[in-house]
């Protein structure tokens, strides 16, 4: 399958890339790793007049802690997360997530920024970033702005990015001591989108009580879902079995999945509950708590 015809631009700097977006407006689309966009162009779910490839702009691939944040350059490939010692030792939820995105070959091309900017509620990073309380940095003609990820996803394939903006960085607050997180996904086979998946990040207090909780759900509605009620319920409580079970139940209530060949809404909501429970246990365990 061949995409419909377009003009391809490979700017060498962010300034040039932004100028191209300014010039072509809605008729342009940013190409990063291309592992979501190119398949869509090939099956002609999408058509575009101009592709602006940011893959040749230096300085958009990094994973570093700086000023209280884990900063990930938008063009960082998923495989780089998998191979990062920093991610493996301090951000296991990110490693969980990267490892279940598509398959290893796709992850050699796919980028973290692309996974978010695509705005697909079935993508895996959005739920994890919601659980982590992340923000994204958008560069536009007037400079940069920071968008909390809970305000980033606005609809199916729709984000808060303006047509003349480029997502350049993801910022995750460095977790406090006694924090842990996990991402648990149910997929029919390697490479499939989630039937359901849950991301949980918790911080524990001196007595082992939950002082902070973030819970995100994948493929549970038109946008990635933040399970706010469940987060509120868990915060301040000891993470015992009954509390975690009620938290998982509340999280599944936030899920509004639709029927497709991966299952019926009731089944997916039940899977959201089961996976949230598993993610809760793993997160508490990784935070040093007992479950």
């Amino acid at each position: 399958m061949i995409p419909s015809a377009f003009d391809y631009h490979a700017p060498g700097t962010l300034v040039d890339a932004l100028a191209l977006l300014e010039k072509f407006g809605d008729d342009a689309k940013v190409l990063s790793g291309g592992q979501s966009l190119l398949p869509m162009l090939k099956i002609r779910l999408a058509q575009v007049g101009h592709l602006v490839d940011i893959g040749r702009i230096a300085g958009l691939e990094y994973i570093k802690e700086e000023a209280g944040f884990l900063k990930i350059g938008a063009a960082t490939k998923e495989v780089a997360l998998e191979r990062s010692d920093l991610v493996r030792t301090k951000y296991p939820i990110l490693l969980d997530t990267a490892k279940v995105i598509a398959d290893p070959l796709v992850r050699n091309r796919a980028t973290v920024g692309g996974n978010l900017a695509h705005g697909d509620p079935a993508n895996d990073h959005p739920a994890t970033m919601l659980a982590l309380g992340a923000s994204v940095v958008a560069q536009g003609p007037k400079g940069e702005r920071t968008i909390p990820v809970d305000q980033f996803f606005q609809g199916l394939f729709a984000t808060a990015l303006a047509p003349n903006e480029i997502l350049t960085e993801i910022r995750i607050p460095v977790p406090a001591a006694k924090s842990g997180g996990a991402y648990v996904k149910l997929e029919r086979k390697v490479g499939d989108f989630a039937t359901a998946a849950a991301a949980v990040q918790v911080t524990l207090g001196a007595k082992g009580e939950v002082t902070k909780a973030g819970i995100g759900l994948t493929a549970a509605g038109p946008t990635p879902i933040q399970a706010g009620e469940a987060e509120k319920f868990l915060t301040g409580k000891m993470p015992d079995d009954a509390t975690l079970a009620e938290t998982a139940r509340l999280a599944s209530q936030a899920a509004k999945p639709t029927a497709d060949r991966r299952g019926a809404p009731d089944y997916k909501r039940e899977m959201a509950r089961v996976l949230t429970m598993r993610a809760l246990r793993a997160a508490v365990r990784r935070a040093g708590g007992k479950v």
Binding site: L31, L38, V79
Partner: peptide, 12 residues
């Protein structure tokens, strides 16, 4: 690195 060449543009 192994990649799927049906999902890479020649220009890339």
């Amino acid at each position: 690195e192994p990649v799927k060449s049906c999902t890479v543009l020649a220009v890339q």
